[in-house]
């Protein structure tokens, strides 16, 4: 498992690369199909690409160095507090979680109204089946 801060940077980098690749394909197509240029990549384009790569490398070095500073990753997570907490929640090891639940759970009274465990799901299942059949019939026979 890779470090969290590096993971964030790697994820960001992968998305940037995908977006930049999309932009590059767009540029090549524009030059080929609209400008109808003989030489697709101009000097300016190469300069922009080179400068972008340099900026990305410099930024990555800076961020990796900063990530080595303690609390760096928690600072970054501070603005997405609630959602990050969800991440933490999801990463709870099972054993401690069971312990805490065991401490706080009341004795469940889950055997109340046993018939409802059959009747209610059956009703919803039946309804969902009928709706599915009706939708299929409607959309396959009405020229959609």
């Amino acid at each position: 498992m890779i470090d969290e801060a590096i993971g964030k940077i790697l994820g960001m980098a992968m998305a940037y690369v995908a977006s930049a690749a999309g932009m590059l394909v767009a540029y090549i197509n524009y030059r080929k199909r609209i400008v109808k240029a003989e030489r697709v990549m101009t000097g300016t384009a190469w300069t922009v690409i080179g400068a972008s790569i340099l900026a990305v490398v410099a930024g990555a070095v800076l961020v990796v160095r900063l990530a080595a500073v303690p609390e760096a990753s928690s600072e970054a997570a501070g603005t997405a507090e609630t959602s990050e907490a969800t991440v933490e929640a999801l990463q709870v090891e099972p054993e401690p979680a069971v312990e805490t639940v065991a401490k706080t759970s009341p004795p469940p009274e889950s055997n109340r109204w046993p018939w409802i465990g059959i009747a209610l799901p059956a009703a919803i299942f039946l309804f969902a089946t009928v709706v599915t059949a009706a939708l299929h019939r409607h959309f396959t026979t009405h020229g959609h």
Partner: peptide
């Protein structure tokens, strides 16, 4: 502990629903 209480709604279902409804 946020990691504990964030599962609150799930626990309402899994702790209190009767057999059959838990499956649903």
């Amino acid at each position: 502990n946020q990691a504990e209480y964030e599962f609150g709604w799930f626990r309402l279902g899994f702790d209190y629903l009767p057999a059959g409804l838990i499956g649903m």
